[in-house]
Design a protein around this nucleic acid. Structure first.
Lengths: 214, 214
DNA sequence: GTCTATATTCAGATAGAC
DNA sequence: GTCTATCTGAATATAGAC
């Protein structure tokens, strides 16, 4: 952890995340990681005790980044903000992390399932904490009466996060759809559905001031 | 394709699908596939020209099963059935395929991204056809006025399929949630959202007879 | 249709010099 | 902190017998 190894260590993590994301865990060799860092494979062992440990750090770092991005985005809103607004901000931050820390977060989504059991287990504490944060967000919404009583909050969370996480497989930076637009649309579908609006201006009365501030 | 090799061939595919799903492509060895089939590794080459070809067959088979299950489920409904009903049936069939052909479909979801480029490319035609089927379903819904005009149909599809596909990572056969319940809930969220019901009985008028027949 | 034997390549990891 | 040299095991794939 000395200062002069910081740069290299971070570089190794970056390169490893990139390769894990692209090729999976087993297919990524330490030789290739080292080569892209301009060093020899055995030199990696000065920084990491094993390939497994390297993967674990990539996974943990990814969750930490995404978690703190989401928490910051929500906390930037007033505590009393409508839950739909909070969810939209959280979804946007979650997607934004895919872009900023793309290789780390994508490794979490794609590679976690193939990681050695021991690595999965160590990474799980962080993942659970993040899931719990979302769960609490939705619980808050229901307590306030902003989510209908019949909704299965666990499935609601899995629905949204599942859809968000899948975006790493199709989203294209150059494409027409920005991450904010995706977060907006997904949140709107989640809260209001795609069925045609009911006759009246009923929704606007029932859900005042929730939409489109940003 | 002689009859007496049929059993073994299928057995190899089954075992391979299982291992690909669990460990990923690169981490799955032909030695282990062969071992679980009770034969030696080189014997696999009588049935498949390479490991890549084996993977391709697993991927293709998975999409074929899921596609035909979904199409059958939709076609079992009257052509004029509400689109929500069709989507619910399709979602249910999609999830059901995870159970019946779980290793094949899970391999598609988890391993496709790490497959060699050549394999991905060959598998892509089938995948595209399946996506198109869903796209047409939603387009039909919009033409009929059963989906609101402002909805971005591409995102609607990605939203639902993304969430459905992610279930392979958390669904537990012994758990409390049945696949049909998940399909029902997801479809209901997709069409009606989780915001509290609007005052009036407006929805029941606007969307007659769509809910809960099964 | 499956076998044994083997060629070839390459993986993760260690030892020890600098 | 990085190197060279190397150990050890294991991977895909081929050759050719049965």
């Amino acid at each position: 952890m000395a200062q002069d190894e910081g740069a290299t260590r971070q570089q190794i993590l970056d390169v490893a995340a990139r390769l894990f994301r692209e090729k999976g865990y087993a297919a990524t060799t330490q030789r290739e990681i080292a080569k892209r860092c301009g060093i020899q494979a055995p030199s990696l062992y000065y920084h990491f005790a094993s390939k497994d440990e390297l993967l674990l750090e990539v996974l943990d770092f990814g969750i930490e980044r995404i978690f703190s991005a989401v928490r910051d985005a929500v906390e930037r809103l007033p505590e009393a903000a409508p839950i739909e607004r909070k969810v939209r901000a959280a979804a946007h931050a979650h997607l934004e992390s895919f872009f900023v820390y793309g290789d780390y977060t994508a490794t979490n989504i794609r590679v976690f399932g193939q990681a050695p059991k021991a690595v999965q287990k160590k990474n799980l504490a962080l993942r659970d904490a993040y899931e719990r944060y979302w769960a609490e967000l939705f619980e808050q919404g229901r307590k306030r009466g902003e989510i209908r009583r019949g909704a299965h909050l666990g499935l609601v969370r899995l629905f949204l996060l599942g859809a968000l996480n899948r975006t790493v497989d199709w989203w294209d930076e150059e494409g027409a759809l920005g991450l904010e637009a995706i977060a907006d649309r997904f949140t709107e579908i989640l809260f209001h559905g795609i069925a045609p609006a009911e006759r009246a201006p009923a929704r606007e009365r029932a859900q005042p001031a929730i939409r489109r501030e940003s």
